[in-house]
Design a protein around this nucleic acid. Sequence first.
DNA 1: TTGAAAGCGATACCAT
DNA 2: ATGGTATCGCTTTCAA
Lengths: 366, 366
Amino acid sequence: MRHGRLTVREIARLAGVSVATVSRVSNGTGQVSEETRRRVLRAIEEHGYRPHHLGRALAARRHGAVGLVFPGLSGPYFSELIQGFESEAVQTRTSVHILCTHLRADSDAEVIEMAHRVDGLAVLGGTVSPDTLEELAVMLPVVVLAGDGHSAVPAVRVDNAAAMATLTRHLLADHGLRRLEFVGDPSGSPDVTERWEGFRQAHRQLELPPPRAPIRVGLQQPDGVYAAEQLLRRAIRPQGIVCANDETALGLLVGASGRGLRVPDDLVITGFDDIPMAALVSPPLTTVRQPVRDLAAQTARLLLQAAAGGVDRPDEGLVLPTDLVVRGSCGCPTVTDSPLTGRRRPSTRHGGARRAGTDHPEKEGL
Amino acid sequence: MRHGRLTVREIARLAGVSVATVSRVSNGTGQVSEETRRRVLRAIEEHGYRPHHLGRALAARRHGAVGLVFPGLSGPYFSELIQGFESEAVQTRTSVHILCTHLRADSDAEVIEMAHRVDGLAVLGGTVSPDTLEELAVMLPVVVLAGDGHSAVPAVRVDNAAAMATLTRHLLADHGLRRLEFVGDPSGSPDVTERWEGFRQAHRQLELPPPRAPIRVGLQQPDGVYAAEQLLRRAIRPQGIVCANDETALGLLVGASGRGLRVPDDLVITGFDDIPMAALVSPPLTTVRQPVRDLAAQTARLLLQAAAGGVDRPDEGLVLPTDLVVRGSCGCPTVTDSPLTGRRRPSTRHGGARRAGTDHPEKEGL
DNA sequence: TTGAAAGCGATACCAT
DNA sequence: ATGGTATCGCTTTCAA
């Protein structure tokens, strides 16, 4: 044995007991006399014995691990997601395996491969095809995080459309802006699909002409710079740019100031997510706060419950609330002059219903 | 069986053969007649049989997985790292388990826990204590990524000190700057320790008074904003700020422009890493490019080799080359006026030695 | 309270 | 070419 790992049998021999007893001691199950327990424990400590994971898992027919599937992980959004997820998992002594598909061509196969190594799977919305999702769901418990479960799988999400509609109405109605552009690729992820939908919804609700086609770029900071390049060299500049998330908004801010445009005077820019940087840039970013960490934690909770209980399919999904966070980048007066305090004004909350589909967003209160 | 997974035995019965034959067919090992193979394959396909990972792993006494341990993951640096690592792993059909310690108090225990579920471990420098590292190294193959192996473990790294010294000399000698500040926490990670060391080295080499104590902040964008807050309200402003990485430099750029300072005229700012945004901000960021992706790929290569070969300890480490990338933020003329082209000027390369410790950086060529 | 033995699912050696 | 069977490391009945 290369690294000299001991087995139950050897510990049993060393302690002069049977393997069954060693197992009982190391798991704290069954009845063992104090005297024997001590003898076994001493042998265990002395040789640094740790039950081999594979043997244990095979006997229990459980991997003791769940998977978390992402497109890739850049930025504070994913970081937060992982922390939220793991915070729940550690409590059940379940380890979390993270898979970044990077949206490769064969990524569905990788996810299925992972499905064979875990007791449950959390999949970020849009990461795998609906077909694969269904295929996975018959193999093991699956929960979709921030996306659509396609009725085969429960999902934990926010009401992106309602939140984005509120934000857009704020720009259209309260600031009287026209010619808004949407930056983000609705076909890239369910989150963006819904945000784009909310953006259009707001235009309809206010009986305005529908917006132009979205600027289809990714969700990272450089993508925002590319979008700025596309948008700001046009003859007719938009009055406002509504970004699919904060990171692209930060990129747009860079692109705009690189062209000598002042925000919000020459151009209004908004984001979505409320990442830490949103409050720190100047002007601070008007955005929508979503409970990213909690989103992940609830997903984990649902999944772990299903994985542990041997439930075939987890309960119904959840819709978590969002908040409109109004700061300076939309043209509202900034409350503080230091970008470091980042205090927020009273804001509009959306959702909070505990069950999917029953969400009735309040009227916006601005 | 909850999800109706079949076993070898059942497939064997269905195909009218022995389990040995099923195993041979499903693994493509040994000799099987064409006729029998077809029969077995049909049974396999028909019932969607996939050998159970745990059974297989137990028999092979290999997990078929390696671990990648991080402090946490935010930003393009980690994203790139993971992609580089996985690009190597997929080739050996090894799955990668990512563990984010978030630098929790008990994170060493988690890493040890993970060590029991994988065949090898790649640990980002500074993530676990030297003691734990040594403990791990006797359990399984370990490679340190971007850090110090403490002679117990091979490490794949760049020569941070030399690269940072070159960058700093560029500011001190070529631009004649004085009063430089270093932003980053040298005790936070080996990378930063070495960069801080290189920063001081450059001062010594040019026989200048040693720099002031570093501004100890984290490595993310908001940390750069905090650093700006600390530095720029002082009576005597520094002439240049040397950041431990690009993300903090971007934060500093935000903080500086938020205070109405112009870069590089009023203040010079530099980064480290050359993340995509570095070329896109205005002014574009002078920085050091390091082969992050390749760093991770080489780590994976070393590790997988050791894990597969049953080698007790991987070969010696590697030092990969870096490049000084001079752009506008240090005061050098920007080559292009569009931040989107991001062309680079000829730059100074560092390292590239294939073996640890034999690196002799060239003289800077600017 | 303790031990013997039967799995868990798959692989591989040794016969045939 | 194929089958029987021991084995991997651990858990868990079932008897004693």
